[in-house]
């Protein structure tokens, strides 16, 4: 799986995905399901959590990771279909309300044309679906230099109104 950052550059893979039922051995640098996370980790175990990631589907209740979120190394939100925009809101909640500062990754059925929206909602990496190229994502991320909304971009400092936010994104 190819993963790009918010500039559309390919990132080295530090994480591996571990499916339910395959959790043998160390879970260091593993991205696990919500149930595996709850089964194997204690929300207070900050140092272990920083080296684990959790994968949430649109059916998972995001509230269940409230306690874990501040300490997790990575959270992956899986798009079941590109039309189902729930992960956009989940991302905002995780960044804004749960104080998650680690790698927030989007995966699953994503269109390149959604890349900038993902970044603006606080995602820091995107798993490129096999039918699309890295170049498509890169081009799409650079397609707009302005935005009307103050959003949760990790690379834009939050600003306080429509116009000023637009100006700041433009000034980047």
């Amino acid at each position: 799986m190819t993963v790009v950052n918010i500039q559309g550059e390919v990132k080295d893979q530090l994480w591996r995905s571990v499916e339910v039922g395959e959790e043998s051995g160390s879970l260091e640098s593993a991205i696990v399901s919500l149930s595996t996370l709850k089964e194997h980790f204690d929300a207070s175990d900050q140092s272990s959590l920083s080296r684990v990631g959790v994968r949430l589907t649109v059916e998972d209740d995001v509230n269940e990771i409230v306690e874990y979120a501040p300490h997790l190394g990575l959270i992956e939100l899986v798009f079941s279909q590109f039309k189902d925009g729930r992960p956009f809101s989940t991302a905002v909640t995780i960044r804004r309300d749960y104080g998650f500062a680690g790698d927030l990754r989007a995966s699953g059925d994503i269109l390149p044309d959604q890349a900038l929206f993902l970044v603006r909602c606080g995602f820091s990496t995107i798993a490129v679906p096999p039918q699309f190229s890295v170049e498509q994502f890169k081009a799409s991320l650079a397609a707009y230099s302005v935005a009307y909304q103050a959003a949760t971009d990790s690379h834009v400092s939050l600003v306080s109104d429509l116009r000023r936010s637009a100006v700041e994104v433009a000034a980047e």
Binding site: F82, K83, D84, G85, F88, S89, V92, Q114, L116, F117, L118, V119, R120, C121, Y144, A147, Y148, Q149, A151, L162
Partner: peptide, 16 residues
């Protein structure tokens, strides 16, 4: 007009 700007390409609310 304020709503137009806010809602145009809203990153979170374009796939409702």
């Amino acid at each position: 007009e304020i709503i137009r700007q806010w809602s145009t390409f809203h990153p979170e609310f374009s796939f409702l």
